[in-house]
Simulated scan of single mutants.
Amino acid sequence: MKVFGIVGKSGSGKTTLLEKLIPAIKQQGISVSTIKHTHHQFDMDKPGKDSYRQREAGASEVLLASSSRWALLHELRNEKEPEVEELLPHMTKVDLVLVEGFKFHDHPKLEVHRPAHGREPLWPGDEGILAIASDEKLACDGRVLIDLNDAEAIADFIIEHLQLRTEK
């Protein structure tokens, strides 16, 4: 599976871009899944539910299944946070995995950057950031600049960079 990252500071619009990017990539016949990183504690489960109670009792993993989806909850229990390479084998094989976050990982990335937010960009310190998606014209130190509102152009950049079109 090919991996490409979408990075940027909090509130820059990464998830909004992914909502547009996924259908633009799928429209070109490429299967796609995502991995989302968060720095916050999260829980998909609800206190009182059977699966929550089983995890609280000490189960390492709880798999929930229904007729419409399944989810595997894996408790780290003081283990280190997994890297992208450790997570990928748990996913069904697809052509492309888009990774939101994991901004310090070494896979190729595109940064979502909005100068109006007043935050410093990530790309000056990360050679893995190959392109910038922005809503303003920027000097990007030789990196590709793509209009943040043009999901098809961003999809084309990722597909061409990863040579996914030639593999189909």
Rank of each mutant, 00 (worst) to 15 (best):
K2D: 12
V7F: 02
S10G: 02
S12P: 10
T15A: 04
T15H: 09
L17Q: 04
E19D: 12
K26I: 11
K26G: 01
Q28L: 15
S31D: 09
V32E: 04
S33F: 09
I35D: 02
K36R: 10
K36L: 11
D43H: 11
M44Y: 11
D45K: 07
K49A: 05
K49E: 03
S51V: 09
Y52N: 12
A57P: 01
G58T: 07
G58Y: 04
G58E: 07
A65R: 14
R69A: 13
R69F: 12
R69I: 06
W70N: 08
W70Q: 14
W70S: 14
L73F: 15
E75G: 01
R77P: 00
R77H: 07
N78D: 14
P89N: 06
H90K: 13
T92D: 07
K93T: 13
D95V: 06
E100V: 00
G101K: 07
H105W: 13
H105M: 05
H107Y: 13
H107E: 05
H113Q: 06
P115E: 01
A116D: 11
W123N: 00
G125Q: 13
D126A: 12
G128E: 13
A133K: 04
S134I: 07
D135T: 07
L138I: 15
A139I: 12
C140I: 06
G142L: 12
R143G: 05
R143P: 06
R143A: 02
R143L: 08
V144D: 00
V144A: 15
I154C: 08
A155S: 14
A155D: 08
D156Y: 03
I158D: 00
H161N: 14
L162T: 10
L162K: 09
L164Y: 07
